[in-house]
Design a binder for these strands. Sequence first.
DNA 1: CTGAAAGCGCTAACAG
DNA 2: CTGTTAGCGCTTTCAG
Lengths: 322, 322
Amino acid sequence: MAAAAGVSKTTAVFVLNDRPNFSIPEETRTRVQNAAKLLGYRRNGLAAALSHGKTGSIGIVVNIEAGQQDSELGASYLLGVLLSATQAASAAGLRLTTIAYDVTNPPPPDEVTDNRVDGLLLVGIMDEAFTRAVYGTGFPCVTVGSGYALRRVTADNAAGATQAVEHLISLGHRRIAYASPGLTRADRERRQGWLETMERHGLPSDGLEQDWEPLLEWIESQAPDAPTAVFCRNDSYAALLVPAARRKGIRVPEDLSVVGFDSGIIAEAMELTSVRNPLPELTARAVEMLTGLIAGKEVPELVTLPTKLNVRRSTASLGAAS
Amino acid sequence: MAAAAGVSKTTAVFVLNDRPNFSIPEETRTRVQNAAKLLGYRRNGLAAALSHGKTGSIGIVVNIEAGQQDSELGASYLLGVLLSATQAASAAGLRLTTIAYDVTNPPPPDEVTDNRVDGLLLVGIMDEAFTRAVYGTGFPCVTVGSGYALRRVTADNAAGATQAVEHLISLGHRRIAYASPGLTRADRERRQGWLETMERHGLPSDGLEQDWEPLLEWIESQAPDAPTAVFCRNDSYAALLVPAARRKGIRVPEDLSVVGFDSGIIAEAMELTSVRNPLPELTARAVEMLTGLIAGKEVPELVTLPTKLNVRRSTASLGAAS
DNA sequence: CTGAAAGCGCTAACAG
DNA sequence: CTGTTAGCGCTTTCAG
């Protein structure tokens, strides 16, 4: 320790960490600093962390599988979360440690809660057993978006779906499909919003919930009851549907209006009308809850944040083929 | 420690970490395991790390400013890196800790090298002083992409530019612009590739290097010498240019061919022809070098990986307005 | 095969 | 104002 080469311990700590401790003789101070420089001293953050029991970083457990394909399209949500979480953590003076979760080979819950981070954010983990195990350890954690956990912060998926559907209705559409394989909780919540909105407006919904491929074939067939608009479970889904539609000669938005969900980078790039998933706010909130938890405070069980619709160029009035 | 509740220390370590140590009486083993369960024992990874001097995680210093705007478009490269680095690290059994770097308030080099990670990946850091300081500490680090550091792994930017330009030439284009503000090393390398290729094919390049706005005005003016194709510094840039062009009534690819660089999520979403920046390979290689460095091995100073062109739908033969 | 003891590098009382 | 001391919780020789 630098102390050896000059004065001694506590003193060194004071100058090196410059503590709210007045009066350290200039002379001593510089002596320590020189010694430090000379010996090439660098603080060992690990030891410090062990000592005072805080690592200054939080973990984010992400389902990495989503980004494993050749295409990054499916990972767009994850990317948005990673970016905004990094920013949120950084704003809170914390580092973000990414912990990869792979469904086929999930990490042992004990390993992710092994104190190398002060708390955990869970994202997109559809594994109930894992989630329960992690929460069960009592380690501070909050989930972002949908998931099995109680303690979570999420966008208002149903309300978002309603915004999407009402936008379409206001454009004159009546045959509005919901494109989704319906796997996740978010999918189901969005579906619910779509369904209720359709019903509230007296519009039929039967047969209008499908995967995008059959949907496109239906539209291509020009059947009179084919949908004229489709609300996609998320942007990635729309990014699959729109080019496929165009390839079939179905013009967007002239022949078909489409709206996505997330309004992330993909939506921007393809000028897709989309419901904004407020990731920066969501993650900021989650980080806040997490730090609260770490500090031993009470935090809400569920926080739901509002969405808004970003109208871009993939939706148009029914029959307004320009 | 669990040891207290049953047997004693070393033994506990053996069973809990199950070491390559044969012969632990079944009885003792279960006894320890039960005790552990009972006391809710969880290993403290931090203490372990301090003890054997390896944290099992590497850091990635990213310039977070790029993603700070309202739009995520500018952060697409960063997103791609983050995702592939997470995967690369995970494949190597490492965690990835994101360390935000903000130009206006850069973290002290000493803080990023404080041993809370075993090594560092630097991405998109244009701050020479910072880079030097970090490398100067002797802490293991390698930079991904361009940057001031010697030890780095990057795509072959010039060759990639050549691929882009030659594709355009093969489509009959002769007035090929390079859209770039020319700030970064990568920009300059790509420019170099563009320039050399133009020259090699006897094509003029004067005045063809500009920002996208003046470029579009020029094209809109229908001047006879206006470019018919543009090679953009990266996908994000193309994502700005293409919609703006369409808004001016310039059709892509009928009136204007455009090719991007990175071929990431944006290019996929907008079906942009783009030079692939091999991020997964790049980051995997970088992680490999880093682990080598950490293990005290010699590693190459510079690794350059090839790009390839992904032809999508933003480029077409000159005059082939369909 | 199991126990004791030292120490990783730092922090945090508590004395001098 | 500066030095001593006792740990943080684990790993790791080295004995029993």
